[in-house]
Design a protein around this nucleic acid. Structure first.
Length: 112
DNA sequence: CGAGTGACCGCAA
DNA sequence: ATTGCGGCCACTC
């Protein structure tokens, strides 16, 4: 396991968000799931709000590929950042998940 | 320490 | 399509 199981969810989330490569995006639910709590998607959002503002939260989107609601500046700002990284954002502020969804090759969940 | 809030997810009507 | 509800964990007041 690459993630420190002893640390709090917040720490893992921050590590994952910080590990999102350039031009890629992750979902709140996916991050939460990788942290061990697939239902704790809101916690991820919460961390984004009062967590490290240095992390690339603009690369974090919801399950629908849409942008966050409380993002500073609105979805426009987030969309601008993503486009700036080469991510195509639709008029509905949605990113192509099948293209930009970053899936860390870990947990050996492929099959046992 | 208790209560409230939060940038979400999924289902049901 | 929208609205409502429960759930999860952490942080702030």
């Amino acid at each position: 396991m690459s993630l420190p199981k002893s640390d709090s969810l917040r720490t893992k989330v921050e590590l994952l968000v910080a590990d999102i490569p350039f031009g890629k995006v992750m979902t709140y639910g996916q991050i939460a799931a990788l942290c061990g709590s697939p239902r704790a998607a809101r916690i991820v959002g919460g961390i984004a709000h009062y967590g490290d503002s240095e992390l690339p939260w603009h690369r974090v989107v919801n399950k629908h590929g849409g942008l966050a609601r409380g993002f500073p500046g609105g979805p426009k700002a987030q969309a601008r950042h993503l486009r700036s990284e080469g991510v195509k954002v639709g008029d509905d502020y949605r990113v192509d998940m099948s293209e930009y969804w970053y899936r860390p090759a870990m947990n050996g969940g492929s099959h046992d």
